[in-house]
């Protein structure tokens, strides 16, 4: 296997609202597109939050791009954050900023030397690709769920991250938009080595091109492999998650 972008090494921790505990051991290679699928409360979002360094495991280690989140001792952001793009279930667009300013925020903060014109063209290209240009001057409260999510994905990709974590990326998106998003992520992967980890609660065309599917249930990995391999091996009750 190629170099690992994300390692969850014997990670164990309780899951909120579930009697089960998360107990996973995962290794995701650089450039891989991995879909974590499974029913609600199976631990998918928790894996995304662990990978993003937002929560610490009770036991085990989480290593992203060679950085062990456990060594973050203060609030000062680790440089690895700038190599990570993440969109959680609640995308968290800044409510007092327009969509354009939201997407431009990472560039404005971390690329201060970039000219305003270059910044604007980079943001507009991103918005155009995700069909958000007409919404550029709207505030998050004026957008629908799918537009907010696409806006957050655009923002997460602004700094050209090495790893993209997506929690429920297709929530609120219509069928056509799911395909647009899928094409865009694949395009970005073709442009640069981008590891994608997407958590979904049901099968979606978005993960048709995934290299691996990790099937999760009650905090444990039920199956891990290519979609075809999983379709042939998993229990009938779980087959619907594989598509």
């Amino acid at each position: 296997m190629n170099e690992a972008a994300l390692i969850l090494e014997q990670v164990r921790m309780p899951m909120l609202g579930s009697p089960h505990r998360l107990d996973v051991d995962l290794r995701i290679g650089a450039g891989e597109f991995v879909a974590v699928v499974g029913p609600s409360r199976s631990g998918k979002s928790l894996i995304v939050e662990l990978a993003a360094g937002l929560v610490s495991p009770e036991a085990g280690r989480v290593i992203l791009l060679g950085h062990d989140w456990a060594v973050d001792v203060n609030d000062e952001p680790s440089p690895v954050r700038l190599r990570l793009g993440a969109v959680l279930q609640q995308p968290g667009l800044m409510s007092n900023m327009t969509l354009f300013n939201n997407v431009a925020l990472p560039l404005r903060y971390h690329r201060a030397s970039m000219s305003e014109r270059d910044r604007e063209s980079a943001v507009m290209a991103q918005l155009e690709r995700l069909r958000l240009v007409p919404m550029r001057d709207r505030f998050p409260a004026e957008l629908n769920q799918g537009e907010v999510r696409r806006g957050a994905i655009a923002r997460a990709l602004m700094l050209a991250p090495d790893v993209l974590l997506l929690d429920d990326p297709v929530a609120g998106l219509d069928a056509e938009m799911v395909l647009t998003l899928k094409a865009y992520v694949e395009e970005r992967q073709a442009d640069q080595p981008l590891t994608v980890v997407a958590a979904l609660r049901s099968f979606s065309p978005f993960i048709e091109g995934a290299d691996r599917l990790v099937l999760l249930r009650d905090g444990r990995v039920e199956a891990d492999g290519t979609r075809d391999a999983l379709a042939a091996t998993v229990a009938p009750a779980l087959r619907r998650y594989v598509g």
């Binding site: 993003a52 937002l54 609030d75 000062e76 952001p77 680790s78 954050r81 700038l82 990570l84 993440a86 959680l88 609640q90 995308p91 968290g92 667009l93 800044m94 409510s95 925020l105 990472p106 903060y109 971390h110 957050a152 923002r155 997460a156």
Partner: peptide, 21 residues
């Protein structure tokens, strides 16, 4: 409100220090 709507977490994810920004 920023805490509830996870804007605070989003800032952290973007590597923008809450204290400074």
């Amino acid at each position: 409100n920023m805490s509830v709507t996870r804007e605070v977490v989003a800032l952290r994810l973007m590597g923008i220090p809450l204290s400074r920004f």
